[in-house]
Design a protein around this nucleic acid. Sequence first.
DNA 1: ACCTGAACACCGTTCAAGT
DNA 2: ACCTGAACACCGTTCAAGT
Lengths: 222, 222
Amino acid sequence: MAYHHGNLRPALVEAATALLDERGPLGVTLRGAARRAGVSQTAPYRHFPDKGALLAAVAEGGFQRLGTAMTRAARAHPADPLRALEAMAIALVRFAARHGAHYRLMCGPAVRGRDHPGLRRAAVAAWELLTTTVTDCQRAGQIRPGDAAGLAFVLWSLVHGLSTLLVDEQLPPVVRQAWGPGELAKHATEVLLQGVAARAPRTAPAPLSPRRRRRPARRPRT
Amino acid sequence: MAYHHGNLRPALVEAATALLDERGPLGVTLRGAARRAGVSQTAPYRHFPDKGALLAAVAEGGFQRLGTAMTRAARAHPADPLRALEAMAIALVRFAARHGAHYRLMCGPAVRGRDHPGLRRAAVAAWELLTTTVTDCQRAGQIRPGDAAGLAFVLWSLVHGLSTLLVDEQLPPVVRQAWGPGELAKHATEVLLQGVAARAPRTAPAPLSPRRRRRPARRPRT
DNA sequence: ACCTGAACACCGTTCAAGT
DNA sequence: ACCTGAACACCGTTCAAGT
């Protein structure tokens, strides 16, 4: 116990992170973190103005770890930004699946980025890894040209939504039991790349016949 | 005050819903809902085993309202399931943007579906509206054939992710200020339909020249 | 059958002290 | 400068009563 000597702040962040991993979001408590750091229940107020500031520090650490994982995944494909993009998407979803409570804290309402510039910077940096790579893909001719932000937020929504569905266990069992987080992310990314609209196969020349005519459709159940 | 006569349960659900809308997730309290319903602080335990059960009832109501909104949106396009799908996606994102705290509760960790079958049924019903319409689109030749669940969960992830990014105000300002929720949903759905990969224009015949060669790509920043 | 009142353990936060 | 201890208002939940 080398605390009480000026390193209490990181000790509190570490304690809160451990509580988050072990007991979930409801288990993170200012008093509990203080207890775990071996310090009185009011000592945290010397280092954080309130509980939200401590949570923001925890979330900031999560974004840094996420950024590291995404960067490492991208490094495996230095000459192929599309593969790098896919690897980063997979890394993000796997991170979320592995650190569910942490991911929820990072993206949830408990922390408001406007009040914590360090957190906001870490979050922006992580997301810019994605958008930058989208631009790289456009430069390389692997993603169709156009407003990069307009495409990047779609990819971002996709991987973030998949992550939260995984964390909150809301995917239907048939999907969840068939594939792991990485496989789901890979599949989702590929679907987004190819699109879901009916069309001729990509690599073949366009057919000479007109596109299939629409049949009358069943209405969704009411 | 016609309570104390057997309709306390719906009154508590209504009170908790109002607290959720007015004060956000942290403002929802068992004691507060009881106060608002004009009843003692322990009276809710006659109708709900714990706070989670009350929250589940609130979330269930949200899924019912969401399902109604999606169904109504789809009804405007009875003969065109692809347009119906788009309309439902827009309705979902708009619902989430308008009832942020409610949507977060519905999809968040506060309520675990396994413990509340009514909630789980309502959630499944809402999501099945989407997946059913995906199948309708495949039957109509508007969405490429293949595993419907594998395509539906991608669409689901997309609209859910966009909704949560909107609710948590995590979209970059350049995106958030340029478009409203409905426009973002419409754009995202169209991007998913068309795909983001570089390719020849859909309606024109395939070009005779080979696809553009990849240039060496810049690495994402480390 | 339905509701109340007192009580317990816990929490975030403040304030007056301690060294 | 950094930490402690007592205190306040609030919460979820339990239990013995009340009608």
